[in-house]
Computed example of a mutant assay.
Amino acid sequence: RLFHACPLAALVAQTGDGLDANHLPLLREGEGFVGHVARANPVHALLPDGAPVLAIFRAGDAYVSPNWYPSKAETHKAVPTWNY
Rank of each mutant, 00 (worst) to 15 (best):
K77P: 01
P25H: 11
P70I: 09
V79Q: 11
V64G: 09
L19F: 11
P48V: 12
A21D: 10
R28H: 03
S71I: 02
V53Y: 06
A55W: 00
V34G: 07
L54V: 15
L26M: 11
W68S: 15
G18V: 04
V43E: 01
Q14H: 05
G50Y: 08
A55T: 05
E31K: 13
R39H: 07
A9M: 00
D20A: 09
R28I: 01
A38I: 02
A55P: 02
P7Q: 05
A10Y: 04
R58M: 05
L11Y: 06
P7L: 15
P25T: 15
P42N: 07
L2G: 11
R28L: 10
G16E: 07
L11T: 04
P48I: 04
A38P: 04
G50W: 03
A38Q: 13
G18R: 15
A78M: 06
H76G: 05
L11N: 00
V79T: 09
V37L: 11
A62W: 01
R39L: 11
H76C: 02
P66N: 13
Q14V: 10
A59V: 06
T81G: 10
R39I: 10
L8H: 06
W68Q: 13
L11Q: 01
W82D: 06
A13I: 00
E29I: 06
P52Y: 01
E74G: 00
W82A: 02
A59R: 03
G35S: 03
P42A: 13
H44C: 07
P80S: 12
V12R: 05
A78R: 02
A21V: 15
T75P: 02
P48L: 12
T75F: 08
K72D: 06
G60H: 14
V79C: 08
A59C: 10
N41S: 15
T81P: 00
P7I: 05
A55M: 02
E74L: 05
H4F: 09
L46T: 00
L26V: 04
L11G: 02
H76P: 00
Y84N: 07
R1H: 15
L19H: 04
A62G: 11
L47A: 12
N41W: 14
G50F: 09
Y63C: 12
E74V: 09
L11P: 03
D49W: 01
N22F: 00
L2R: 10
T81A: 11
Y69K: 07
Y69D: 10
P25S: 10
A55E: 00
D61H: 15
P52F: 03
P52G: 01
S71C: 10
L27W: 14
H36Q: 12
N83H: 14
A5M: 15
N41I: 10
H23L: 09
W82K: 01
A59H: 06
P48A: 14
V64W: 12
L8C: 01
H4S: 13
E29G: 07
K72A: 12
W82Q: 05
L2A: 14
T81D: 03
D49R: 05
A78F: 11
L26D: 09
L8S: 01
G32I: 04
V12A: 08
A13V: 03
T81H: 07
R39E: 06
G60E: 15
P48D: 13
F33V: 03
A13H: 07
K72M: 09
V53M: 03
R1V: 06
D17M: 06
